[in-house]
Simulated assay, not measured.
Amino acid sequence: MKSFNTLVLLLCFTFCIAQNDEKPSATDLSSQTNYEKVHELRLGAFKLLAGGFLDISYEYINSTDSGLGVSLMLNLDDAIETEKLGLIPYYRFYFGDNPEFKGHGFFVEAFTYFYTGDQYEYYFSQQGNSVIEDDSFFDVAPGFAVGSKWINSGGFLFQIKFGIGRNLLSNSPDEFVGIGDFYVGYRF
């Protein structure tokens, strides 16, 4: 029993030491300068309020003039027929020059939009019955976007972006797809 208690105490002590060494404290995270903050989370405001689309974005600022990220689009409104779920990986080039912030100002973005959707066709059969056909599709649309990002010293940011991509697989009822919104977010 004595050796078992010693073993349990030794393991507890080891785990406590390991946890102490690996976790940064809250003061370390809050003392980062704006230049050292490289992670961003954003939410598309207009699409969410007006159209029922949830657009969540994550971006990693890898240098003073570039960043890479991914956006997730989710259609929350069943009345909207086309896009249901989309994933948009992107790479950005920034043209702002401020020694206090990385990745801000005017930008150009290259993206690829992978998305699924539904297309409903309404028609009448030869018997006069109303027929509704539901065709699901998947399409890929590479494209370009332009926009601008503003950030304050507290880490809160606003961004506006507009872009267009062309569908490659021709499964979607549309030849082109548009992206963009007014985003609100936070850099940490």
Rank of each mutant, 00 (worst) to 15 (best):
G180Q: 06
G117Y: 07
A141V: 13
Y90I: 06
D135A: 00
V184Q: 00
Y113R: 13
G96Q: 12
Y94N: 04
F188D: 08
Q126S: 14
F95I: 04
S130W: 05
L85H: 07
I132H: 00
E59F: 03
S170A: 14
C12E: 13
I61C: 06
D78I: 08
N129D: 08
F46E: 01
Y186K: 15
I80K: 07
Y120D: 06
V146E: 03
N20W: 04
I56P: 00
E81H: 02
W150I: 15
K149V: 04
S66R: 10
L10F: 12
R166P: 00
K23H: 03
R187W: 02
N5F: 11
D97Q: 14
G52F: 05
F114P: 01
E100C: 01
L157R: 06
F101G: 05
V131E: 09
G96H: 14
N62G: 08
G147H: 02
A110M: 07
R187P: 00
F162L: 15
S3M: 07
Y35E: 09
F158C: 03
F15Q: 15
G154E: 15
P173I: 13
G67V: 03
F15K: 08
D65T: 10
P173W: 06
S136K: 12
L29T: 13
L11N: 09
C16L: 15
Y91D: 07
G155I: 15
L9Q: 13
M1S: 11
L9D: 14
G163S: 07
I80T: 03
E59A: 02
Q119V: 02
V131N: 04
G96N: 11
D55W: 04
F188I: 14
D174V: 07
T64L: 04
Y120F: 04
A141F: 10
F162I: 15
L54V: 13
Y115N: 14
E83D: 11
